[in-house]
Design a protein around this nucleic acid. Structure first.
Length: 593
RNA sequence: GCGCCCGUAGCUCAGUUGGAUAGAGCGCGGGACUUCUAAUCCUGAGGUCGCAGGUUCGAAUCCUGCCGGGCGCACCA
């Protein structure tokens, strides 16, 4: 093992499994190699299950740069004491050029302290990879379908839809960045009673557009947004649909109105930077429904029967009815579920089963659905259906997105769906901007409730994570300008000039590839927002050191060499911030106003 | 009544899929700075991770049962 002074230079190149690997996978490979060597030497038994071996940053930075639990995980199967294994492992890893010190600690952790040059090399790696730094091959190109938004086409997007839209889209981007082939999909509920009501409401507006005075009865969609739809219909059909019976215009108006509403919804989504690949129409399912039922029937999962009355209070008007049922209870659901109503027509669930059957036939290796919290009760039956249809080969992961509470300076914003007065997505984006909306929607776990306060989200303060992260990026962007203003001619950066304090910042930046994989595996894009907050915090801390000690500033007029190195460091942080923001679908600000 | 989600510092929330002394921001206590690298900074206090058992080297994390909050509970979409 070579010892070097902190901050010292090393002319050596590192021996490693693959220098192109990111830090954590590289050391995971180092540990695996070391374990394999111990097995070869006969110090460890063969056939150990090493899947639980992890290489992670220790929670406490004083424990070093990396830690592995290998000894503790393997102790039982090896029939050895954890610390004994750890010591052997330490001897192996100490031989690596990248390792300054390997130390056994606690119950059997092996802590590794790395040479500063490892972190210096990471700055170069970030610069070289640029926008691809953190991109992962975790997904191995496997295809995955993410369905999100899927708002009913009966009105414009409002804030209730917004969170699912942002989280779904960011999740799709995260998965893409982690190496999956992602299809972004929207399911249009354009069949059933709601769209008939929509068509009738549009017909009223059509009559209105032709000069009639109308009154909107209870149960119709009252919103103003149908006024332009009525005008468009009037322009298209003139007065030919005026006196005719409903049967002659309903289907036509339904199709036209849904198309117009979907145009609007897509425009609203575009305001958020969301453009989905597939818009799948429920009305287009056609023979798929019967096909899905036949598929289930072939597995003996369909029967005619009568469901038990639900327990509890909601059973007033219940009466036993024979229906076509799916044996969902065989797949973890609480009850079997109806596919056909007692009158023989399909249930909504049947359509959804058919839709998921269609997705399965398209060959995805995994499906993800984003559901609103009010559809939580639907999760079990849907996963049951996909398990049954796919024979447990294609997992369906349903993510629940909780409601957003809209506030204005602490006061709840009143919304009434009945009157048609609700805060639309377009209104909010116009008021605070796409980036703020997207970022804030990702500042909490999807399954916990979120407050969205119009006043707070645009506040320029430490409390506001959007501002805090953007400000860090803007500060970094300002460094080049400052250096130019100071008339500094920058040489090529020499990372050897950076000391341990500088390198602390790289350590945080180097976590990014891990965060991507963790967020993708957990399917929790909010982790990216939290990480960017941490990284921004680390940068601000560094920046603030310059207040007390001018030598710690990034731009030093009398030291072009150190300035060049510090700017390269700042650039690395800026690059990671940009990469993270890009995954979130948020622009990285060059300057703030 | 049943199912799902949640319960972590005074408040708002994280918590690396079972790891070391449980973290951050706000708020609170103490201090710094009279400046433009202050659209503040440093520092301190603050916790029975809802409660009680269990699983194991090790639990906020997994299992069971309670307590408390949210959502949903044939044929609607």
């Amino acid at each position: 093992m070579l010892l070097r002074a902190p901050g010292g230079r090393s002319g050596e190149t590192f021996a490693s499994p693959d220098p192109k690997l990111n830090l954590y996978p590289r050391f995971t490979a180092h540990v695996a190699d070391a374990l394999a060597a111990l097995v070869t030497q006969g110090d460890l038994p063969t056939g150990l299950d090493t899947r639980a071996v992890a290489v992670e940053p220790p929670r406490d930075a004083s424990h070093g740069d990396l830690a592995t639990n290998a000894a503790m995980v393997l102790a039982k199967a090896a029939g050895m004491r954890p610390r004994d294994i750890a010591v052997m492992l330490a001897l192996k890893l100490n031989h690596l050029d990248e390792v300054a010190e390997a130390e056994v600690a606690g119950p059997g952790f092996l802590n590794l302290r790395l040479h500063g040059d490892v972190w210096r090399a990471e700055i170069a790696a970030i610069a070289a990879a640029g926008g691809d730094y953190g991109r992962s091959v975790l997904g191995a190109g496997k295809s995955i379908n993410v369905e999100y938004v899927s708002a009913n086409p009966t009105g414009p997007m409002h804030m209730g839809h917004c969170r699912g839209a942002v989280v779904g889209d960011a999740l799709a981007s995260t998965l893409e960045y982690a190496g999956f082939a992602v299809t972004r999909e929207y399911y249009i509920n354009d069949a059933g009673g709601q769209v008939d009501t929509l068509a009738r409401s549009a017909h009223l507006r059509y009559r209105e557009a032709l000069g009639e005075t109308i009154e909107i009865p209870e149960g119709f969609y009252p919103g103003d947004y149908l006024v332009p739809v009525g005008q468009a219909l009037a322009a298209e059909f003139g007065d030919v649909m005026l006196g005719k019976p409903e049967a002659e215009w309903l289907a036509i108006f339904r199709t036209r109105t849904v198309a117009l509403m979907m145009e609007r919804i897509r425009a609203d989504l575009k305001l958020l930077g969301i453009e989905q690949d597939v818009f799948f129409s429920e009305a287009s399912l056609g023979s798929r429904v019967q096909e899905a039922l036949d598929t289930l029937a072939a597995k003996g999962l369909i029967y005619e029967g009568v469901l038990e009355a639900p327990k509890g209070e909601a059973a007033e008007d219940w009466e036993p009815r024979p229906q076509t049922l799916f044996r969902a209870s065989q797949f973890g659901d609480d009850s079997d579920r109806a596919l056909k109503k007692s009158d023989g027509s399909w249930t909504y669930f049947a359509g959804d089963v058919a839709y998921h059957w269609d997705k399965l036939t398209r060959g995805y290796s995994a499906l993800v659905d984003m559901f609103g919290a009010d559809h939580g009760g639907y999760v079990k039956r849907m996963t049951a259906a996909v398990r049954a249809l796919s024979g447990d080969t294609v997992p369906l992961d349903i993510k629940i997105v909780q409601m957003v509470k809209l506030l204005r300076a602490g006061e709840p914003v009143k919304m009434s769906k009945r009157s048609g007065n609700f805060v639309t997505l377009a209104d909010v984006v116009e008021e605070v901007g796409k980036d703020v909306v997207r970022f804030i929607m990702l500042t909490k776990r999807a399954d916990s409730q979120l407050d969205f306060d119009f006043a707070k989200v645009v506040e320029q303060s430490r409390d506001n994570p959007v501002f805090y992260v953007q400000y860090a990026h803007a500060r970094i962007a300002s460094l080049k300008r400052k250096a130019a203003e100071a008339g500094i001619v920058l040489p090529a950066p020499d990372y050897a000039l950076l000391d341990d304090v500088d390198l602390a910042l790289v350590k945080t930046a180097a976590l990014w590839p891990r965060i991507v994989e963790q967020a993708a595996e957990a399917r929790e894009p909010h982790r990216i927002a939290f990480y960017l907050g941490d990284l921004a915090g680390a940068f601000h801390t560094q920046w603030n050191l310059g207040n007390d000690d001018a030598r710690r500033r990034f731009v030093l007029a009398d030291d072009p060499a150190l300035t060049a190195a510090r700017l390269a460091l700042a650039d690395a942080v800026g690059q990671v911030l940009r990469n993270g923001l890009a995954v979130m679908g948020v622009e990285a600000a060059e300057e703030l106003h």
